[in-house]
């Protein structure tokens, strides 16, 4: 690790490969949160179809809006883009740590509001930070990668593939292992650990990377 060297294999630098691996882990942690939060939200606000529809839709709306924010931030320099990515991962991890008690507390506070038109706004308020951060990571990293590959399709495909593959595996790991050996809370801790690890490794590698590729 200490002898980091800028290499270029098949169009992708070593740094890019590391970043892809970290984005894979980001996909794993994102799906863990999605599965656990949906469970906690269903238990808190109800498993009727109205609640399920609102919770799933609001989650995705947050990702979409986060993506637009990420797009707006993507004109920044390479260094800033990496810092944004680190910031997003740390934000998701920090939110993750307090998420279950927070959701339960908010659901208790809003017990008599959440059956009506308030529910989408309550769920949105709970999920706004992590979903915005999750949605923003793709455009930020695509821009970063594009600066190296100069190919939009290549950058998008690589990151989209690697992140989705992470989510697919994360899904199996969550219900097949983490829920079997642990709890909702310990599963969230595993996801938060991944976020902090991603942020830490990205920080380390970004410090070793030359300013221009």
């Amino acid at each position: 690790m200490g002898s980091f060297k800028q290499t270029n294999t098949g169009g992708f630098s070593f740094m890019t490969r590391i970043l892809s691996l970290l984005f894979f882990c980001s996909g794993v942690s994102a799906i863990i949160y999605q599965i656990v939060w949906q469970r906690v939200l269903f238990a808190s606000f109800g498993t009727d179809i109205e609640s399920i529809t609102i919770i799933v839709s609001v989650f995705m709306l947050g990702l979409g809006l986060g993506s637009l924010i990420g797009g707006a931030m993507s004109n920044a320099s390479e260094k800033k883009l990496i810092n944004y990515f680190i910031f997003f991962e740390v934000s998701i991890g920090l939110f993750g740590l307090i998420s279950i008690p927070l959701i339960e507390y908010v659901s208790h506070l809003t017990l008599h509001l959440s059956g009506g038109w308030w529910l989408p706004f309550i769920v949105f308020a709970i999920l706004v930070i992590p979903t915005f951060a999750m949605g923003a990571t793709l455009p930020v990293l695509v821009t970063y990668l594009f600066k190296q590959t100069k190919s939009v399709g290549n950058s998008v495909t690589r990151l989209y593939y690697i992140n989705t593959l992470g989510s697919a595996i994360g899904c199996l790991v969550t219900v097949g292992i983490l829920f079997v050996i642990g709890t909702r809370q310990s599963t969230i801790y595993a996801a938060a650990f991944l976020n902090f690890l991603i942020a830490f490794l990205t920080f380390i590698y970004s410090r070793k990377k030359p300013a221009t590729v």
Binding site: G64, G70, G71, N75, V142
Partner: peptide, 13 residues
């Protein structure tokens, strides 16, 4: 790149 990709991604989501 980032802005247009994010718009396409947002539209998809």
């Amino acid at each position: 790149v980032g802005r247009q990709t994010s718009q396409l991604y947002a539209a998809n989501i």
